Simulated scan of single mutants.
Amino acid sequence: MTDTDAYKHDLRLYLQDARDAFLWKLDGLGEYDVRRPLTPTGTNLLGLVKHVTGAEAFYLGTAFGRPVDAPGLWITGDAEPNADLWATPDEPREEITGRYRRVWAHSDATVEAFGLDAVGRLPGEDGGEGPALSLHRVLVHLVAETQRHAGHADVVRELIDGAAGLRPGSGDMAPGDEAWWRGHRERVEGAAREAGARAAG
């Protein structure tokens, strides 16, 4: 395996890890819970999946001349503000998650077809050409963006039902039952209050 192949392999591995985490965070939840907004800005699990689907399609589809059906991104002017960050009642969960899987298969084919130094071009304003980006840079960006949003999904899922962790059975959480975690949270809260009092005092 060449260095270039190894770099590509590592980037795809970390991207796939985040993709899998997204879909796992939906497991066992009903329609309301996968859609309910749990932050003041409306962050919700299914909306996050919809958003990363659009991002992959934009960067690893459109930018490399391989468009694929996906939700438009509001930030690119292809949808109303925040339309890619929530799901309407008429958008079935299975359709959104199925499209995500189809887009990531399409993205993987793009990565397979091009070298890391291949250049894609983002669309510019008013139909003109936007910035040119190498496949390597696009993959780094997508790994960072997808992992960032997977972190959002971690927090949202924990707020819904307390489920936490990087992946099923990974052992990345400290061992403890509900009482242990309650005690831990109280300890952290106590430390925060004491630090706040010292700073104010």
Rank of each mutant, 00 (worst) to 15 (best):
T62Y: 04
A83S: 13
G72P: 10
T76M: 10
W74C: 03
A55L: 12
P81D: 15
A57S: 15
G65K: 00
L73H: 08
P89A: 09
L73Y: 08
D69F: 06
W74K: 02
G72L: 03
Y59L: 10
L60H: 09
D69G: 11
L60R: 10
I75K: 06
N82W: 11
L73T: 08
E80D: 04
E91F: 06
G61T: 06
T88G: 14
F64R: 00
L85R: 15
G65E: 02
L60S: 12
G77T: 03
D84C: 10
G77Q: 04
E80T: 02
D90H: 13
A87G: 12
T62Q: 14
I75F: 07
A70N: 14
I75S: 12
E56F: 07
F64N: 01
E91M: 06
L85F: 09
N82C: 00
G61I: 04
P81W: 15
F58W: 08
T88M: 09
E91T: 08
G65L: 02
E91C: 07
E91S: 08
W74S: 11
P71G: 03
E80P: 00
Y59M: 12
G77S: 02
D69Q: 12
G77P: 01
T62K: 13
E56H: 13
P81K: 15
N82M: 06
G77I: 04
D78G: 05
A70V: 11
D78M: 02
A87P: 12
G61K: 03
G72H: 07
L85Q: 14
Y59W: 15
T76G: 01
Y59I: 05
L73I: 08
P81F: 15
A83K: 09
D69I: 04
F64I: 01
D84Q: 12
E56T: 07
T88F: 05
A79E: 04
F58R: 13
A63E: 02
A55T: 13
T62A: 10
D78P: 04
G61N: 05
D84N: 14
D90W: 07
L73P: 10
D90Y: 09
D84W: 13
G65Q: 01
L85S: 08
L73G: 09
I75H: 04
P81H: 15
D78N: 09
T76W: 03
A57R: 07
T62G: 06
F64K: 02
E91W: 08
